[in-house]
Design a binder for these strands. Structure first.
Lengths: 155, 155
DNA sequence: TATTAACGGACCAAATCGGTCCGATTTAGG
DNA sequence: CCTAAATCGGACCGATTTGGTCCGTTAATA
């Protein structure tokens, strides 16, 4: 299974690209070329980012986008949430009222702890951190060979 | 966005239900009734769990399913992976070869660290733990009011 | 006033997902 | 044996979501 939608993935790429040149104001078309992503899709992604306030948009000639905050102060979690919406593991996490099992489902309360962990993992890394070279990423390779029977969480 | 598919969610519910009566061998129909889930879907879920070796299946009259291991030794991560497949945040996490951006995409290596965190969160909790009362779930409620501008990771 | 570029939304094709159903196979019991 | 009970392994469909494109409108610059 893949957790992030393609759009959210693009969102992180685009936002990280903007973070690489903080002062510059760029058009959606330029970002598309530089990231080698389809331009119509990049425009859609930037619209979503602008709508959530992560980037500021300037219309008209000479307009374009730029980060609304410093790259150290925007987390991957925010970018993902801007495009895919608020993050929850299960149906009842996001749409609490629509779950008829609320009263008798024993597993439900336990998702909260896992949810926190996922959220914190996504919140802990900033766009600025995404720009640092891969060599500095902590524990990128598995310390030991993965157990064959264990589910894999690959890079 | 919702991370787990409905089927995977059902899988955890069903597996947890089996964990509640470790010695019993039950049919898919019985599990469906007791969990109040549609029986055809429960059958599908149990098939997937059996295929991955998490539960053992006995065919024929008097057959049914039971956990293959003790409830303390099966993690939520395994149940989810059995139904939704191996877990990865991005496309390039799961289908490494299909990503044309591999060579120049700066963000790619950084997903590994986040991936680990998500995987560990899902691996840390066992089916047995899912059965413990909600009052013992650590830090279920937020210690402080959530920041309005921060993405939410609700229960 | 013309050009540039974001905005807002509609729109479509494709893929995925939830859910059901059926024939084949296996086991237990009378 | 023969029948009933169950899983197994797929196929299958309808609904929803998703990825991606396009267009008219608005706003800003020169």
């Amino acid at each position: 299974m893949i957790i992030l939608s393609k759009l959210a993935d693009y969102g992180v790429i685009v936002a990280t690209h903007l973070a690489a040149y903080p002062a510059r104001q760029v058009t959606a078309g330029t970002v598309a070329i530089e990231t080698r992503l389809p331009q119509a899709t990049v425009a859609k992604v930037l619209k979503a980012l602008a709508h959530s306030g992560l980037v500021t948009a300037a219309r008209g000639a000479g307009g374009g986008y730029r980060l609304a905050r410093r790259a150290t102060e925007i987390s991957v979690a925010e970018v993902v949430a801007a495009i895919d919406g608020d993050i929850g593991l299960t149906q009842c996490s996001v749409h609490v009222d629509e779950c008829a099992r609320t009263t008798y489902c024993p597993t439900r309360p336990h998702w909260a702890a896992i949810n926190r962990a996922v959220g914190e993992a996504l919140s802990a890394i900033s766009l600025d951190a995404m720009l640092t070279p891969a060599a500095f990423v902590p524990r990128m390779a598995s310390p030991a060979a993965p157990q064959p029977d264990e589910p894999r969480f690959s890079a």
